[in-house]
Amino acid sequence: MSPSPHHPTEREAFRLEVAIGIVLRAGVMLSSACLALGLVLSFSSGTASAAGLLLNVGIVALLATPVARVFVSIVEYVKERDWRFTTLTLIVLVELLASVVAALIFERKI
């Protein structure tokens, strides 16, 4: 059975769900670990810069997780040759990148 672009096979849909689940779980674990460690360090004396770095890495990992999830979806939709959903997810990625650009512009102003 050849996959039609508008009706993904059960297996393809499942593969995408599993891939997304892995990305989300990895992102949550990485960011939670950095945030927890950063907090512990910030309460112990003398390691303020390391704590600050870890906390910021944790926040960036948290914010990057949904972006990575969108990226993985794009790759999967390209593999499936589902151009309609490739386009839609690309638009979502562009919107997320636009917010990053806006954030960088504001950061420079401060």
Binding site: V92, S99, A103, L104, I110
Partner: peptide, 17 residues
């Protein structure tokens, strides 16, 4: 997740996060 990220990133850039 995606929805809130688009907003949170902007707050982060403003130093409010």
């Amino acid at each position: 997740g995606v929805t809130a990220t688009a907003g949170a990133v902007i707050y982060y850039g403003h130093g409010q996060l």
